[in-house]
Design a protein around this nucleic acid. Structure first.
Length: 1000
RNA sequence: GCCCGGGUGGUGGAACGGUAUACACGAGGGACUUAAAAUCCCUUGGGAGCAAUCUCUUGUGGGUUCGAAUCCCACCCCGGGCACCA
């Protein structure tokens, strides 16, 4: 009965907080909007991982309240979408009923944690009063031309029987059910997200955003902006042009062929000129039948067919080039056609190798940066060592084939030399001679451009201190003059490749090697920038400069120009399913596509018996005749367009995707009951932007992109006042099962929060989830860890209880805050404790602000340990002898500061202690303590004494000790005397209050 | 392949370029107890030594520095994202 009993304490405070509405003081000057990604109320309920983010925002919310902010901390439900519907179908209940049921469970579970949610602002995306505004936003987009119908092929999930957005795929599979997605042509609603691509990208770097780098990078990557140019190639002598997109205009002189994707319209256009049209047609059909996965499988060889009889002309040098059709070129990106430069593009290189097409190098590498001049006469760089030939002093030869990491006593027979010219070049001749000289019987010349080069280096013994430890011998690189080369020179030298390749090989080089020769082959395309060669008048320009000049020329000739492309695509916005917001559109025979008038919103989702997907292009809603058939609002502008005679019109039967409702929900919390506007102007101004947003990283390229897109649109139409919705974004690290796997029913490793809470209390769980490690990191759950947190709380409780029990009368005096306040000179918290306390205040404050909850908690533990240690030295007095005995005990107002520090993490517990300390009001109405500067520094510090940077001793000195005194003290230490001995001190480094280092 | 993170005791993890291993878990020993649980105290990176003490240690190899887990270069491994985006 003397123990801390959370089961008794926690529900009591939860009830009290709910009734008093203590979190809902929205009248303070400073505001803080803390937002959690609202959950999808699934049937499985919560596991202990879900609330981690909620606890963090709750800690910050309570902290901000104590700091004097009005805090908006709402919660709601994202309940539309496939999982809810699939769950409903599986369990044979209506989605609406299922959602209702699940929300109840979720809410009950969440309430156990004692979170500061204002449930008066609870929202639910499936509530018609909510989705009225989702539909309203869609209508506005429709009005502005941002929502349009399209017949482009889209990703179709045959199992979920619906179209999907690019963002809904995982490795080409349906993100929900894992089915293979197929391309299907069908009518779809699409949102023109690409129109916002530039702004979505730019604002990621704006000051309105304080996001984690990883999420920003992911989004940038997804948006995928690339700057390049379009070039028009003339097709044969005809009138047709082929337009290609490239980011590497500087490599245009290396273009040896062009490729179009199988979908490209040009094929139909120049059909007559294609001599092997049948073959081409066959290839197109084959490509269409491939799934996306097959097509993008990189392991697979590239395939393609040459369009015989068709040539395209490179406008820069008037070369006639062959044209191919190949499915490694994507129809939807750029212009759906590319200029192929095998020497400088890996894909083109691979294709060229397969079809034996010429490879022409036009960019020579320069080292590292532009300030290094290109190396004259060395256009063809060494890239990878293929063979190494080693000789020892006895003239014995070892050969090493680095491709296979094998040693042989004999020289390899074949040596490959590449080149595209028909005649052997002088370089190749030289190389051939070297190869033959070293014993190759078969020297093969391939029509692959990259050329081997030879490099020599001496291998010496272990006294030479650089390189190749892994291979068991120490080699030193020498220049042509047999002088050791510096690291800087080495960077300019081909040998750097030799060295690296040798280092990364796993073979052991014998010790007695005297001479080594390495033969390297450039086996890849060179894809970096460099200096132009073989490029006519553009020779010797850097890639960057050449691109500029070339674009200018293209523009002048009117055959191309600058072009920016994005990987991101428009948002496929319709789903052929039941459980989603109806798209508020009416198709009229006469007027075409008409938006539902605002006054008729919401278009309610009709209640139906059958909501299974049909698998056809229409949603299940199409089957509900009385809902689908309406009057056109344009033909019947005056009255109720759902009644009366006139033209025939039908409602749109597709619904919105699950991401629709979550794209703006944070705005509705601000003004949840507003029937006139999506959010009231003044309320919006008061609360936006969201100051802190916490949620899973899996939303980086979906929800967070969609929400930013919608927000920018709302900004453009004047509905919101900020450009960005979320100021600070932190992603929450997963809590894995105790086995280290993802928590899931499948693995049977799910930990239910209800059970853990009933065993150890909500505060223990809160503390543990914040303590387990860095917030953003994935960490496995350990119930043992919760036990540790409970012990921490128990110890605090025990400390107070012991004093209540033992102290009796004098404790009451001691607890009399007024008394101590009136007589400050009686302050008696021992100084060492005072210092720990103030350090703790400082650290906890900073750590909460920086999401370092784990170290905040460990600091509080350090404080508690200090408290125990200090007080343990003093027995509780039997008689009332305050003056002497109190000197080792903490003063109440100091102790209370600690309770306030603890309160955001363990609110129920702290509130209980607060009451026991005699307070009648909540701890959350207190002020967050400020550290007292004079107690932030230790009086005595231990000064580290180092000799040559190694710790040799430490001495206790008073803080702020001068260098001169420290030096004298240090040199007086026996150990130091011993170490320094007869040596002379060359230098002394003194870091105040930390260390003194003697260099001898 | 490309882009982000990471790699520190038996475990989760601490450490403005300045005592590596804070805090917690686990383990071992002790106290209390008839006993167990709970609680409290002590020990706990490796190696050597009776000991004082010495010595090694932050994925690997180099470098910069009086001094590196931390900064630079190269490599290896793990996690996440993207993936034929020209």
């Amino acid at each position: 009965m003397n123990k801390y009993n959370p089961a008794k304490i926690e529900p009591k405070w939860q009830k009290q907080w709910a009734e008093s509405g203590i979190y809902k003081d929205y009248s303070r000057d400073k505001k803080f909007y803390a937002l959690d990604m609202f959950p999808y109320p699934s049937g499985a309920g919560l596991h202990v991982g879900h609330p981690k983010g909620y606890i963090a925002t709750d800690v910050v919310s309570r902290f901000k309240m104590l700091k004097g902010y009005s805090v908006l901390h709402p919660m709601g439900w994202d309940a539309f979408g496939l999982p809810a519907e699939n769950y409903a179908i599986q369990n044979k209940i209506h989605p609406e009923a299922a959602v209702k049921e699940n929300i109840k469970t979720f809410k009950k579970q969440l309430e156990l944690f004692g979170l500061t949610y204002d449930w008066d602002r609870e929202i639910n995306t499936t509530d018609p009063e909510y989705y009225k505004w989702t539909q309203w936003i869609f209508l506005k987009m429709f009005e502005k031309g941002l929502a349009y119908e399209s017949d482009e092929p889209i990703n179709w999930c045959p199992s979920c029987k619906t179209g999907l957005a690019l963002e809904d795929l995982e490795n080409g599979l349906c993100e929900r059910c894992g089915s293979q997605v197929v391309q299907k042509k069908m009518r779809q609603w699409v949102l023109k997200m690409t129109e916002y691509a530039d702004r979505l990208l730019e604002d990621l770097d704006s000051e309105d955003l304080d996001w984690e780098k990883s999420i920003v990078d992911q989004q940038k990557n997804w948006i995928g902006r690339s700057e390049g140019a379009t070039i028009k190639f003339k097709i044969g002598n005809g009138k047709d042009w082929l337009e290609v997109f490239t980011t590497r205009l500087d490599t245009i002189f290396g273009c040896t062929y062009c490729v179009v994707g199988p979908e490209h319209p040009i094929i139909e256009k120049i059909k007559d000129q294609i001599e092997n049209y049948k073959e081409v047609e066959k290839y197109i059909i084959q490509a269409q039948n491939k799934t996306d996965l097959e097509r993008t499988d990189l392991q697979k060889d590239k395939t393609g067919v040459e369009l015989k009889g068709v040539k395209v002309i490179n406008p820069f040098n008037d070369e006639e080039l062959p044209l191919f059709i190949a499915d490694y070129v994507l129809g939807h990106y750029g212009t759906g056609a590319v200029m192929a430069v095998p020497a400088h593009d890996e894909r083109d290189f691979e294709f060229a190798k397969k079809y034996n097409l010429p490879v022409k190098q036009v960019v020579a590498p320069y080292s590292l940066d532009e300030s290094n001049p290109p190396r004259k006469g060395k256009e063809n760089t060494v890239r990878r060592v293929v063979h190494v030939i080693l000789e020892n002093k006895k003239g014995e030869v070892l050969t090493l084939n680095l491709k296979g990491d094998e040693w042989g006593k004999e020289k390899p027979k074949t040596f490959i030399i590449g080149g595209i010219e028909n005649e052997e070049t002088p370089e190749q001749t030289a190389l051939r001679e070297i190869a033959e000289e070293t014993g190759y019987t078969d020297v093969e010349v391939l029509r692959i451009h990259p050329i081997e080069f030879h490099a020599e280096f001496f291998a010496a013994h272990k006294d030479l201190n650089r390189y190749v430890k892994t291979t068991g011998v120490v080699c030193k690189l020498l220049s042509e003059k047999n002088e050791a080369i510096s690291q800087e020179e080495e960077k300019l030298h081909d040998l750097v490749w030799v060295k690296r390749d040798l280092l990364s090989s796993s073979v052991t080089i014998p010790d007695d090697i005297f001479l080594a020769k390495a033969y390297a082959q450039n086996i890849d395309a060179y894809t970096d920038s460099g200096v132009l060669i073989n490029s006519g008048k553009y020779n010797e320009l850097t890639s960057e400069k050449a691109r500029g000049e070339m674009v200018k020329w293209l523009e002048k000739e009117r055959i191309g120009g600058k072009k920016v492309n994005f990987k991101m695509r428009d948002w496929v916005f319709s789903r052929q399913r039941y459980w989603g917001e109806p798209i508020p559109i009416i198709h009229c025979e006469k007027c075409g596509t008409v938006g539902v008038p605002e006054k008729d919103l919401p278009v309610e989702l009709p209640k139906v018996e059958k909501y299974e997907p049909t698998g056809m292009g229409e949603g299940p809603l199409a089957g509900i005749k009385e809902w689908v058939n309406v009057k056109c609002p344009k033909c019947h502008p005056a009255g109720d367009h759902t009644k009366g005679d006139g033209c025939t019109a039908k409602r749109e039967t597709n619904t919105m995707p699950q991401w629709a409702g979550s794209s703006w929900y944070y705005l509705r919390y601000i003004d949840p009951k507003n029937a006139k506007e999506l959010v009231g102007k003044s309320e919006e101004k008061k609360w936006m932007p969201v100051d802190l947003y916490v949620g899973g990283a899996e939303h980086a390229t979906r929800h967070l992109l969609y929400a930013r897109f919608w927000h920018k649109f709302l900004y453009d139409i004047g509905a919101v006042s900020t450009k960005e919705p979320f100021k600070k974004l932190v992603h929450v690290g997963l809590i894995q099962g105790e086995d280290g796997r993802k928590m899931s029913k499948r693995w049977g490793n799910v930990i239910n929060p209800d059970e853990v809470i009933s065993e150890y209390g909500a505060d223990s769980v809160r503390l543990y989830e914040m303590f387990m490690g860095p917030f953003t990191q994935n960490i496995a759950w350990s119930t043992k860890g919760v036990v540790g947190m409970r012990r921490f709380l128990d110890r605090i409780f025990e400390h107070l209880r012991r004093q209540e029990k033992n102290g009796k009368e004098w404790f009451k005096n001691w607890c009399d805050i007024e008394k101590w306040k009136n007589d400050k000179s009686k302050g008696n918290t021992p100084k060492n404790l005072k210092i720990i306390l103030n350090k703790t205040i400082k650290k906890v404050t900073e750590d909460i602000e920086n999401f370092r909850f784990n170290t905040a908690i460990s600091q509080m533990m350090i404080f508690l340990n200090g408290l125990y240690k200090t007080e343990a030295s003093q027995q509780f007095p039997d008689s009332v002898e305050l003056e002497s005995s109190l000197s080792t005990f903490i003063r109440v107002d100091d102790y209370e500061k600690f309770i306030i520090l603890l309160s955001p993490f363990a609110p129920h517990f702290s509130e209980e202690l607060w009451e026991r300390l005699g307070h009648k009001t909540s701890v959350f109405l207190e002020k967050w303590p400020e550290p007292e500067k004079e107690y932030l520094k230790d009086e005595q510090i231990s000064l580290i004494i180092q000799i040559n940077g190694k710790v040799r001793d430490q001495i206790e000195v008073t803080a702020g000790v001068k260098e001169k005194d420290a030096k004298e003290l240090a040199l007086a230490q026996d150990k130091i005397v011993k170490y320094i001995d007869a040596k002379t001190i060359k230098k002394v480094i003194f870091v105040p209050d930390r260390l003194i280092n003697f260099v001898v």
